[in-house]
Design a protein around this nucleic acid. Sequence first.
DNA 1: AGCACGCCGACT
DNA 2: GTCGGCGTGCTC
Length: 804
Amino acid sequence: MEQIAKVIVDVPTMQTNSPYSYLIPQEFLNQIQVGMRVIVSFGKGNRKVQGMVVGIDDDKSFDGKLKEIDSIMDLQPVLNTELLKLSGYLAESTFSFAITCIQTILPNALKVKYEKELVPATTINDADKAQIFGGQKRLLFESDQLTTQQLSRLLKLKKANQIKINYLVQDRAKAKTEIQIKRTPNVSFLREEFDSIRKGAVQQERLLNYLVSMGEKQVSQSDLIEAADVSSATIKSGEKKKWLTRSRVEVLRDPFKHEVTRTQPLKLQPDQQNAVDAISEKINHSEYSPFLLEGVTGSGKTEVYLQSMAQALSENKTALMLVPEISLTPQMVNRVKARFGHQVAVLHSGLSDGEKYDEWRRIERGDAKVVVGARSAVFAPLNNIGIIIMDEEHETSYKQDESPRYHARDVALWRGKYHGCPVVLGSATPSLETRARAEKGLVTRLLLPNRINHQSLPAVSVVDMKNEISQHKESNFSTELLDAIKLRIQRKEQIVLMLNRRGYSSFIMCRDCGFVLMCPNCDISLTLHMDTHSMKCHYCGHEEAIPKICPNCQSHKIRYYGTGTQKVETELKELLPDARVIRMDVDTTRRKGAHEKLLDEFGNHEGDILLGTQMIAKGLDFPNVTLVGVLNADTSLGIPDYHSSERTFQLLTQVSGRAGRAEKAGQVIIQTFNPDHYAIQLAKSQNYEQFFAYEMKIRHESNYPPYYYAVQITTNAATEAEAAKLMFKIAKQAREVLSDQAIVLGPTPQTIARIKKRYYYQLIIKYKKEPQLNELLTKVLKNSQKLGRNAAKVSINPNPVSFM
DNA sequence: AGCACGCCGACT
DNA sequence: GTCGGCGTGCTC
């Protein structure tokens, strides 16, 4: 008799990170399945928590007395076998709690809300009852809303059993419903009814008229209200008079309100055809196979994706396509929808939890066979996947920077293996890691060396800003760039200007004493935000007024430094008063849909210059853009991280691809203080292969990935000493276990040593093969939990995307 | 996480 | 003497 369920409870700690056994009560005996969410009593207070059933058996090895499962939250499993296994893989490979991984895989709407309510016991005296409950039957218990006196009083009453606490688990997964109206089939009855309504009942008259003419189809109540111009009250009375029937129906939000025009597959170039053939063969044979699709901007990668996905669909399989969040623009999404229509589900951060849940269910029940989405879409509940595509595979945003710190590429490869399907990693500038794996034959390389209509790559020139600065006053614009901009405006062509702002933004500094306004909680300077007229901290959200005089020396010469887009925009307006500038940065795109709106404006030539940060480098295609300017190529080079050259090269190559995509020739001007740096020189010649060879040599010499694996361990504590002490202890443990081949960097304070009033220390371990390491790290994590709540905390980040 | 148990300071 | 501070350990 299988009557014991193994449940992972929703308590994310190390001590509760394994399944707990619960008895399955009689009434659920044949209903509970693995992958369902349940509610169980947990702990001494029997508080209710959500749990995930991960196994069912009759193993009674637990020698305490078992509790029963309280209730089931799902009618059918929300996690299938594959995704459950995947959660295990995630937990193990990222050193995360099983429950955290499960909740990462499931849509947010399936995460419950916990509430507590107070209920008076029958024995409570009237005075207490009246004072606490004030006539109400129950009271929501929010401890942070109560004073300590109130709290202790409640606790006392609870101890005396005068008050009961009810634990509530609220499921937020509500399917959206709407009211559907169907008229009575008896039309002659409706005609007769005209006579029976009161004179002047215009709404009822309009409703009758509409019902008579509407036919037998069902309409939603909201549509009816609009179309017949009646109120919902009128409709309700229509129901009473038997003119119509109302019923509540579950609806799946239709993302295809505005149908896109369908497109047909394009004729492929020979290189594209080779790629599609190679991928299709693996689809047809249900064979796991990782590919690297390497092609410059405009070489037609997207068409290869689309036709490969079409192949999977024709084999009655499904397709998963991942793109960086930033390029999940309507431009991109529409290309997929135009090919596959209503079979496409799109998952992106713009959707509400409810909308995401709707899409998730469409995928799960098989209504959507093609999924397009950003990082977390890699967990889409598709069955029978025929192909997984990851566009711009080098993008670092594919790695999640909170627990579970997974890389979507690893998950994609895992799922590819599980389903037996090709995984296509596409990029113009592949990550060294993937490109190196291709070199070793672990990944099959597919090349698209030519641009589709044989346009030449844009001409790239590099301007040495050191000369510029010495010649004239400080400016963000070199003479060469400014002249080029003027020329395009004259010719009514468009310009994209990129401000490479990674790591920097405008901060305030006193010109007399050098004082920089810092965040009181974090070791970072506050950033100037002109839109809200305030100084903000990008890490903890602290906000304060812009100082008018220096808080340190009272000087009035306190000015902002660094180059923000706002400052550049101001300078542009001074230099070129007639140019229309569209600024795109975190401030102007914060509102939902603002991003698209600005791009549309630029596309309609309502602006001459698109000025923005990194976000304009990706996936935009504006044929009228003939000039791309990079104002400061160096800022990303200056970051003390082994990735900085790779990032800079990728960024410059990518933004250069924005110039001259149509018949007009493009030009790119890169301003830099390091004109001779190889990343900039090789971006100038757009030579990925040479960059790859050179950078690999450097990584080899200095023992960096992809020659070594890396793991980053960080500690944080309320004081610097505590964080450091724990980190040194871990470092000592690590050195004892590791072989001579491993390289330990640190411990060192993190680049931003203090965030939200906590101090951070880190340790990097570079290694090739350390069978003991995983065990050690797990032990370190377990020990850190024993240290108690207020002690220093440890977190582990395998294969970090940067060492900072 | 949240609850109970248990051991020390400052109060009716 | 007790009330209540929060450090510690456990939850099927």
